[in-house]
Simulated assay, not measured.
Amino acid sequence: MGHIELARWADVMIVAPASADVIARIAQGNGNDLLTTACLARRCELIIAPAMNEAMWHHQATQDNLALLHTRGVHQIGPASGGQACGDVGMGRMSEPAILAQEIANHFQTGILAGKSVVITAGPTREAIDPVRYISNHSSGKMGYALAQAAVDAGAKVTLISGPTALACPDHVTRVDVVSAEDMYQASMNALKHGDIFIASAAVADFRPATIAEQKMKKTSSDTMTINMVKNPDIVASVASATESPFVVGFAAETHDVIAYAKDKLQRKKLDMIIANDVSDSSIGFNSDHNAVTVLTKGGLVELPEASKHQLAATIVERIAHELSVNTQPVR
């Protein structure tokens, strides 16, 4: 269903302009067109930008509808005062687009990681076989990039160590591009010197070819090929075992026994938190804009139901901030 799909992917929904009629219909819970049904089906926050004649703005019915929406948590930007299309002058002009954009950006800035330095790994790695071929995986990097945006919105200084992806780097994020697992390991250990939080969301190859052919490998008469593999460095375990380790968050992308494997990884690698998800479900996870995860710490687990990766990233950052505040509280 089109209106349901529209309502699911957004981190926030803004209605601009929001006429007196639209405000009234949203307040009454109407769902008789695409806009109002999307508003009813949304799971994210709603922002309205009123725009109407100044007499309609001041009408008690409009003010009552706005008051009702405010009690439901709907946010409002504007209106501004000035000349209107009908020739009247007064309140009711929609706020300028630049103001709306800034207010929406401010809406995401929580400040819960203000003063913190966050290092995030994202995307796949590519392990070369020869100059043409490589071994990789299906990771799109979307979760890591969403986490980078969420950390910036939370006030952190963010370094994103990214394997090959087609994604644009979020604003105010320092991106370090890498290709192989060894590249990512070196970049991570270098960034570790300045990091308070390390989030290992990249899908790093566990093994790489022992040797890389200097020339393209040619097909032979044999029906099989053997490639000797060697283990790659374990980035998240290395960071967690460092002398001055930051708060370390790992990821466990599993196809079965998800929670059991995640718990083992949390304990064995001495992580502070791990995010587990079932990648056997093709509708979420790799390459999808949505996911459903379980957040595990030494204190227990919290299941986060399916949502956009941006929504999940914001919630994960909130969980990290909470754990940091708990762990740094003085003992009484």
Rank of each mutant, 00 (worst) to 15 (best):
E5S: 03
R8D: 08
W9S: 12
V12R: 09
D21E: 15
I26K: 08
G29I: 10
G31C: 09
N32G: 15
L35E: 13
T36R: 11
A41P: 02
R42E: 07
E45I: 01
L46R: 11
E54C: 08
A55Y: 11
M56W: 08
Q60E: 10
D64R: 14
N65S: 13
V74H: 06
G78H: 00
G78A: 00
G82C: 01
A85T: 08
G87Q: 01
D88R: 03
V89F: 07
G92K: 05
G92S: 13
M94P: 14
M94S: 15
E96R: 14
I99A: 13
A101W: 00
I104C: 04
H107Y: 11
Q109N: 08
T110S: 14
G111T: 05
G111D: 06
K116P: 04
V119F: 09
V119I: 02
D130E: 10
S140W: 07
A151C: 14
A154T: 03
A154N: 01
I161P: 11
I161K: 08
S162K: 05
S162P: 09
D177A: 12
D183R: 03
M189D: 05
I199V: 15
S201Y: 12
S201L: 04
A203L: 09
V204E: 04
D206K: 12
F207R: 04
R208H: 01
E214Y: 03
Q215F: 02
Q215K: 14
M217Q: 14
M217A: 09
K219E: 13
K219Q: 10
T224P: 07
N228K: 11
M229P: 01
V230Q: 14
V230P: 04
K231S: 09
A242L: 00
S245W: 05
S245K: 13
F251A: 05
A252D: 02
A252Q: 03
H256E: 11
A260E: 11
A260V: 01
K263C: 10
Q267D: 02
R268Q: 09
R268F: 02
K269N: 03
I274S: 02
D278V: 10
D281S: 15
S288I: 02
D289N: 15
N291T: 11
L296E: 06
T297E: 05
G299S: 12
P305I: 05
A307E: 03
L312D: 00
A313W: 02
T315R: 08
E318R: 04
H322D: 08
S325H: 12
P330G: 13
R332G: 06
